[in-house]
C-alpha cells in the first residue's frame, strides 16, 4: 500500500476516534493500535484467570455455607471474564491458545497483585474490597474505550466487579465489627494488601511508557496517577467507617487538592514482583501450566471424538 493511502487511513481512523465512533473488528486500524489492544486485553484476561487462584485458595476453607457459595460464584465470574476477554482479543486476530502459552512461558504479564499470597479468610474481604475496587477504577473508563468489543465486554465485567467489591467490603465490615481476633485478622489483611493495591494502577505517570499514545487512541482515559488518587480518596474513608486504619502514616486530607496525600510507594518492590520475584509468581504460573498440561489428554479426546462424530455424519 502506498504511504499516502496509509496516511489517509490513519487520518480517517483518528477522526473516528476523535468523534467517539467505536472501532469494530473489521475496520482498518494501525498495527500499533492492534498490538497495544491485544497486549492489554490478553493481560487483562490472564489477570482474571490467574486471579482465580488466590481466592480459590480459600473456597474449601470458607467459614460457612453462604460464604462458600458466594466465593464460588465470584471466582466463577472471573473465569467468565477471562473467557470474554480472550474472545475480545481473538476479534483482533490473537490466537487464544498462543496467548495462554505466552502466559505460561512468562512472556505475557498479568496483574502483579495476584502474586501475593492469601493467608487468612480476611484476605477474601481485602481482595474484594481493595483489588476489585481498584480494578473497577481502572475498568469503568474502559467501558468507553474506542475498541467496541473491549468496551462492551467491560460493561458486563464492571457490573459483576461492583458486586464483588461490595461483598468484599461486607466481609471486612463483618470482621471489623467482630471479636478481637477477627478485627486483627481484618487489619492484618488491609496492611498486606494496601500497598500492592495502590501499585495496581501501574508506574507513576512520568515512568509509564504506554499512557500517552493510549490516551490519544482513547484506549485509556485517565493517567495511572489520576486513577490511583481516585482510589485513595474513595477507600480511606471506607476504612475509617469500619474502624480500620490504612497502613500509611502520611495519609492526610489535602484541602487544596480536595484529595488525600499519601506516602511514597515502594517501586522497587513493584518491579521485583513484575520481574518474577513476588511471593507467589512461580506458584501461580505453575498452577496454570499444570492445569493445561493435565488437561491435554482431555482436549485431545474431545477433538478426536468430534472428528469421529463428524466422519459418521458425512459417511
Amino acid at each position: 500500500m502506498m504511504d499516502v493511502d496509509i496516511q489517509d487511513l490513519e487520518k480517517k481512523f483518528q477522526d473516528k476516534i476523535d468523534q467517539d465512533i467505536k472501532i469494530e473488528p473489521n475496520d482498518w486500524m494501525p498495527d500499533a493500535y492492534r498490538k497495544t489492544l491485544i497486549r492489554q486485553i490478553s493481560q487483562h484476561a490472564h489477570s482474571e484467570v490467574v486471579g482465580m487462584l488466590p481466592e480459590g485458595n480459600w473456597i474449601t476453607r470458607a467459614p460457612n455455607l453462604r460464604r462458600k457459595a458466594v466465593l464460588l460464584a465470584k471466582v466463577q465470574d472471573e473465569a467468565g471474564h477471562g473467557l470474554y476477554l480472550y474472545s475480545a482479543a481473538e476479534t483482533l486476530g490473537a490466537d487464544r491458545e498462543q496467548t495462554i502459552d505466552d502466559l505460561h512461558s512468562g512472556k505475557a504479564k498479568y496483574s502483579s497483585i495476584f502474586n501475593y499470597p492469601t493467608l487468612s479468610w480476611a484476605d477474601m474481604g481485602a481482595i474484594g474490597w481493595l483489588v476489585d475496587g481498584a480494578a473497577i477504577m481502572n475498568q469503568v473508563p474502559l467501558c468507553r474505550c474506542s475498541y467496541g468489543p473491549y468496551a462492551r465486554a467491560m460493561i458486563r465485567v464492571c457490573k459483576e466487579e461492583s458486586f464483588h467489591q461490595r461483598q468484599g467490603f461486607e466481609i471486612m465490615t463483618k470482621l471489623a465489627s467482630g471479636t478481637a481476633e477477627q478485627k486483627e485478622m481484618a487489619q492484618d489483611a488491609l496492611n498486606r494488601f494496601w500497598w500492592p493495591a495502590l501499585m495496581m494502577f501501574g508506574p507513576i505517570d512520568s515512568d509509564s511508557s504506554h499512557t500517552e499514545q493510549s490516551m490519544r487512541w482513547k484506549i485509556k482515559r485517565h493517567t495511572n496517577d489520576e486513577l490511583r488518587q481516585m482510589f485513595v480518596d474513595v477507600t480511606v474513608p471506607q476504612a475509617e467507617s469500619i474502624g480500620l486504619t490504612v497502613p500509611d502514616q502520611d495519609i492526610k486530607w489535602n484541602k487544596s487538592k480536595e484529595g488525600y496525600d499519601y506516602g511514597p510507594i515502594d517501586w522497587d518492590e513493584f518491579w521485583q514482583v513484575v520481574g518474577g520475584n513476588g511471593p507467589c509468581n512461580k506458584e501461580r504460573v505453575d498452577a496454570r501450566r499444570k492445569a493445561k498440561e493435565d488437561g491435554k489428554w482431555v482436549v485431545e479426546a474431545a477433538m478426536a471424538f468430534a472428528d469421529k462424530r463428524n466422519a459418521k455424519k458425512t459417511a
Binding site: 462458600k68 457459595a69 471466582v75 466463577q76 473465569a79 480472550y86 498452577a287 492445569a291 482431555v298
Partner: peptide, 24 residues
C-alpha cells in the same frame, strides 16, 4: 470446589464450579 481455578480448560472450570455451587 477444590478444582476451581484448576480445570482442564476454562469452560470446564466454569462448568465444574457451577456444579459445585449448585450442590452447595
Amino acid at each position: 470446589s477444590e478444582l476451581c481455578g484448576h480445570g482442564p480448560i476454562l469452560e470446564e472450570d466454569i462448568a465444574l464450579t457451577n456444579i459445585s455451587l449448585d450442590l452447595i
